[in-house]
Design a protein around this nucleic acid. Structure first.
Length: 208
DNA sequence: TAAATCGGACCTTCAATGGA
DNA sequence: CCATTGAAGGTCCGATTTAT
């Protein structure tokens, strides 16, 4: 879910694999932008083109392609190493002993420090918005505060966007894969503006 | 300055291959 | 039979271009 490029890290840190969705929507595909598994995807929601958010059509894989002789396996299946020298990525799933994955080393620059976020307070009316790391990675400026555990009022009127996002993307606003690393998130004015004005923006068309 | 574009690096999938 | 290989087909990062 969380896709962060290795380029987001200092050279001293390990490379991490970029996560991709299985099938991007046609809009994101054309724009070469990050999509997600939900339909409509977050990007289409943002641009107000939810109704156009449909899976792209995938080609059938070629069959019967002759393949040359494989290279001899050197030594013992040493290919256990992860691709391109990347660290063994915890994809957010629980480890065998049921301990949460260690996510902190994979957080992108600007990501809040690794701190477990307390569960929502049922007695509170304050909207507690969780965000998956993926969401934050896509919208790093959305992180307004990570230390304030009880956001009372978002600094901007984001109700419209919240409603849309929560309706279409409840999973974005809740911890994923039982990961405890969730944070309160405020949306940026840019995002709010987009949510209100996106309907006028029909320009999410592509070329390529 | 923000948004759109797009080249290409990176990732996933899965049929072919080859060892047990 | 099953683990491994490796290329096809895909996603999306990030530099560049264009619009406001």
């Amino acid at each position: 879910m969380y896709s962060y490029s290795s380029r987001d890290f200092s050279s001293a840190t390990v490379r991490t694999k970029r996560r991709q969705v299985k099938n991007a929507c046609t809009n994101c595909q054309r724009a070469c932008k990050k999509c997600d598994d939900a339909r409509p995807c977050l990007r289409c929601v943002k641009y107000g083109i939810s109704e156009e958010c449909v899976d792209s059509q995938r080609k059938e894989r070629k069959k019967g392609v002759k393949r040359g002789p494989y290279k001899k396996r050197d030594g013992k299946g040493s290919n256990v190493e992860t691709p391109s020298g990347s660290a063994p990525v915890s994809n957010g799933s629980l480890q065998p002993n049921n301990t949460p994955p260690i996510m902190a080393p994979y957080l992108p620059i600007g990501y809040p420090p690794y701190i477990p976020y307390p569960p929502p307070d049922k007695s509170s009316d304050a909207p507690v918005v969780y965000s998956a790391p993926y969401f934050l990675a896509a919208l790093p400026s959305a992180v307004h505060s990570q230390q304030d555990a009880s956001p009372a009022e978002p600094p901007y009127s984001t109700q419209a966007f919240y409603q849309t996002a929560i309706y279409h993307h409840p999973s974005y606003l809740m911890p994923r894969n039982n990961a405890p690393h969730s944070y309160p998130v405020y949306l940026t004015p840019m995002l709010h503006k987009a949510s209100n004005e996106a309907t006028a923006d029909e320009s999410v068309n592509g070329q390529h």
